[in-house]
Amino acid sequence: MPDPMPSDLMPPSFDRAAAEAAVRALLRSFGQDADAPELKDTPARVAEFWTERLAGYGIDLATELKPLPGDLSPVPVILERIPFVSTCEHHLAPFEGHATIGYLPGAGGTVGLSKLVRVVQAYAWRLQVQERMAQQIADALRTHLRPAAWGVQLVAVHTCMGHRGVKTPGVPVRTTLMGGAWEQQPPVPFRL
């Protein structure tokens, strides 16, 4: 049985009333009337948005990444261009892109393809930085699947870079991690 994932998978407490009050205060700090007809429901909508945006903390990967029954051939499993949207923890601004993840089954067996998508979602739906997200996905694959080889590649565009600071929109950032038998010879989908 693989080691359990770190406690960061447990959902944080979410105080909806406090979130709504904070949004009202933010609107007022912008000189806006938070009770105006066009803004009065904004605090509730924003709180609901963040409930969805941070749902990844509640995904238990030990449950998601259970091996399929039966004796399956140990062939490479690679999912390419899994879309994701995450939130930069430094500016609370979105970044979005796609993930390519894969593994060569080993001692941990094989999982359903949708479970690999859930791994990406579990870490994207959190306050995040791209480098950590790539490492967390890789750690989940290694911990739960114990593969002979694994790879993770994230390519994303960060609105915190495009809309503020250097204001350079549309520049993709690529983060690639490889391990096991693929460390020296990555499969084609992971090559630059």
Rank of each mutant, 00 (worst) to 15 (best):
A34W: 03
I78W: 05
I137K: 01
W50P: 09
A36N: 11
I59T: 15
G102I: 00
Q136K: 10
A134N: 02
W125N: 10
V120P: 03
A47G: 10
D139E: 15
L68F: 05
G108H: 00
G56L: 09
I78F: 06
T87K: 07
Q130N: 07
K40I: 14
A36S: 13
E131T: 10
A62G: 14
S114C: 04
V77F: 01
Q136G: 03
H90N: 12
A138L: 06
F95D: 03
H98W: 08
R53I: 11
G108C: 01
L79F: 10
L65H: 03
Q135L: 03
K40H: 11
V119R: 00
R45Y: 09
P69H: 05
T100C: 12
K66D: 02
D71T: 12
L54N: 02
G58S: 14
Y123W: 14
H90E: 10
P105V: 03
M133Y: 01
L141F: 07
G108F: 00
L68Q: 12
L127K: 11
P105T: 07
V77P: 00
I101W: 04
V117C: 04
G106T: 07
A122M: 04
Q136L: 11
K66V: 12
I78N: 03
I59R: 05
S73V: 05
G108T: 00
A124W: 07
D60S: 07
Q130M: 04
Q121Y: 11
G56C: 07
R53T: 15
P83Q: 12
P94G: 07
F95A: 07
W125F: 13
L61F: 05
V77D: 01
H98K: 12
S86Q: 09
K115G: 05
V117W: 01
P83E: 09
G102C: 01
A122F: 05
W125M: 13
H90K: 13
H144G: 01
I101S: 04
R81P: 01
H91P: 09
C88S: 11
D41G: 07
A36Q: 11
F49K: 10
T42M: 12
L39W: 09
L79R: 03
Y103G: 01
A134R: 02
H91D: 09
E38D: 13
G112F: 13
Y57H: 13
G56W: 02
P67G: 06
D71P: 04
V117L: 05
C88R: 10
L127M: 15
L127C: 08
A134Y: 00
T110Q: 03
E48R: 15
E131S: 09
R45I: 14
E96F: 14
D139L: 01
Y103P: 03
E64Q: 11
I82W: 05
Y103K: 02
V111T: 08
V129G: 04
F95K: 04
L54P: 01
